[in-house]
């Protein structure tokens, strides 16, 4: 069984609060989190910053509750697009963009939603949950997205914060479910405070409110998240066939040498 994944931990300017957020996600039992960097073209924030590395954030990574493994931290870039020309940044292989593991896109209108589903090289399409959907989700574009292995993201923290947003979240989610029938959905948090995070089983159960079946809801917090990661990783490979792996650094290797090897060397 794959571990639980939360693909949307917003990047906060203060390092300390980000640390707290990741630590509480580990405490709740998430084994992978992705730190989200948002680029919004309407706010004139155009430069792509280099994502913070896990070693920069923590000296020792927090342990996942119930497992004896440290938490895995990834980076994710979200583009808020309202014009097709904004997506050129994904094709331009600029210096910082290759550091990101996952690309997500937040379409503002129906035309861009179609473009994002059919042609753009992304892993996630975010669905707006804080206001009424400005466009109808169409079945052809969703079907193409499902074939390409692109997932749709629903965020649950606005629903916890406010009652009107909760109504929009549930109605938007239900209208999406009618089209995609519970497949290719990722539920993630976008929590700014540790207390807004919820445990993975609670989130899976929230899927029940969003019209997901039990197995689909569980997949939305575990296996689908994993599929997104693999889709993101496949982009870095050559046609998804050739795969390169980073060689672990030497000081790490020294620490992690198993006892049996040491004994052999001593002999």
């Amino acid at each position: 069984m794959a571990g639980f994944v939360d693909l949307n931990i917003p990047h906060l300017p203060e390092k300390e609060s980000l640390q707290k957020l990741v630590a509480s996600a580990a405490h709740l039992g998430y084994s992978t989190v992705a730190i989200n960097y948002v680029i919004d073209y309407e706010e004139k924030k155009k430069e792509v910053v280099k994502p913070i590395s896990p070693s920069e954030l923590f000296t020792s990574l927090p342990m996942v509750q119930g497992k004896s493994k440290p938490i895995k931290i990834l980076s994710r870039l979200t583009l808020v697009v309202s014009d097709p020309s904004h997506c050129n940044i994904l094709r331009a292989r600029s210096t910082n963009i290759k550091f990101y593991d996952i690309f997500a896109v937040f379409p503002k209108n129906g035309k861009l939603f179609h473009v994002a589903c059919t042609t753009l090289d992304v892993d996630l399409v975010c669905i707006n949950v804080t206001e009424k959907l400005p466009f109808y989700i169409k079945r052809p574009s969703v079907n193409v997205a499902m074939d390409r292995g692109i997932y749709f993201e629903l965020v649950y923290v606005p629903a916890i914060k406010d009652s009107t947003m909760r109504r929009y979240t549930i109605s938007n989610a239900l209208s999406l479910m009618q089209i995609c029938r519970g497949k290719n959905i990722v539920l993630s948090s976008a929590a700014e405070k540790p207390l807004q995070l919820r445990g993975p089983y609670d989130v899976a159960n929230l899927g029940w409110l969003f019209g997901l079946s039990e197995s689909n809801a569980k997949a939305a917090v575990s296996t689908n998240g994993r599929a997104v990661l693999l889709h993101g990783e496949a982009r870095k490979t050559a046609f998804g066939v050739v795969y390169t792996m980073k060689k672990p650094r030497t000081p790490d290797e020294d620490d992690s040498t198993p006892a049996t090897k040491k004994v052999k060397m001593a002999l």
Partner: peptide
């Protein structure tokens, strides 16, 4: 999951249920 506050003795404490 929608619990954000716990109220007791006229005071509100921020909390969450897991």
């Amino acid at each position: 999951p929608f619990i954000t506050h716990l109220e007791s003795r006229n005071e509100r404490y921020r909390c969450s249920f897991n």
